[in-house]
């Protein structure tokens, strides 16, 4: 689910890697090689211009993964979901434990040790600060103004969304990308420094370490 106010224009190139590399000049040969290897993606990729998924699931960053079982029930809630090591230098995080957990779930289903208990899930899903919903409304209003040709008027509402839900990196980064970090008097780098640096930017997934698949 691409959380992109810019829609297909912004998200599209990442969904079709071959088109992406053919449309861009001066890409490093390694990127072109990777794109050729990946080719068109075989899984469903959707474009979420209004950040509907982030709003419904209370997500605050990307990538965020949720596991949903065959009955449509959440079995692992929001957590950082890296399926490769592209950003390892920034995050210091290895994708392998998460991938192993995922494989374990695919194999064992609800019996997997990585499927969370109902109590644990409720504990993680029910923290509801009313400001989170207010922030989502301010962000939605900002998007509406941006989309209707008023990017400058949108800024005040994007700022208010960031103030009401300071944990949302989605609100910060999407807003910076639509106009400029200058409109917000900060930079992504400074914001990351404020919380203690890139190695704590993503809270690590809670994986029971001892129960890796054999």
């Amino acid at each position: 689910m691409a959380q992109d106010t810019g829609g297909a224009k912004d998200a599209g190139p990442w969904i079709d890697p071959l088109k992406y590399v053919s449309a861009k000049a001066d890409l490093p040969p390694a990127t072109i090689e990777t794109a050729k290897k990946i080719g068109p993606l075989s899984y469903t990729v959707l474009i979420d211009e209004k950040h509907v998924v982030s709003k419904l699931y209370n997500m605050v960053n990307v990538p965020t993964g949720v596991w949903i079982n065959e009955q449509g029930r959440i079995v692992r809630p929001n957590e950082v979901a890296f399926v490769d090591d592209r950003f390892k230098n920034f995050t210091g995080m290895d994708s392998e434990p998460y991938l192993n957990a995922l494989k374990d779930w695919v194999e064992k289903g609800d019996k997997s040790a990585y499927v969370m208990s109902e109590n644990h899930l409720r504990e993680k899903l029910t923290a509801q600060d009313p400001n989170i919903a207010r922030a989502a409304a301010e962000f939605g209003l900002g998007e509406q103004l941006y989309k209707s040709g008023h990017p400058t008027e949108a800024i005040a509402h994007f700022k208010e969304a960031q103030r009401l839900n300071p944990k949302s990196w989605n609100y910060k980064r999407q807003a910076y990308a639509l106009t400029s970090e200058k409109d917000y008097g900060t930079t992504f780098r400074d914001e990351v420094q404020k919380i203690g640096g890139s190695k704590v930017y993503y809270p690590p997934p809670e994986l029971p370490g001892e129960k890796k698949p054999d």
């Binding site: 691409a2 509907v52 065959e70 289903g109």
Partner: peptide
């Protein structure tokens, strides 16, 4: 929720009932 793919075809999450779903958000920014 229902969202479109790159070709504009709508997909509904509940259409995938009966399968395991790994729902992952990402962004270009």
């Amino acid at each position: 929720f229902t969202l479109p793919d790159l070709q504009g075809k709508p997909h509904r999450l509940s259409d995938f009932r009966g399968k395991k779903i790994l729902l992952v958000t990402w962004a270009s920014w």
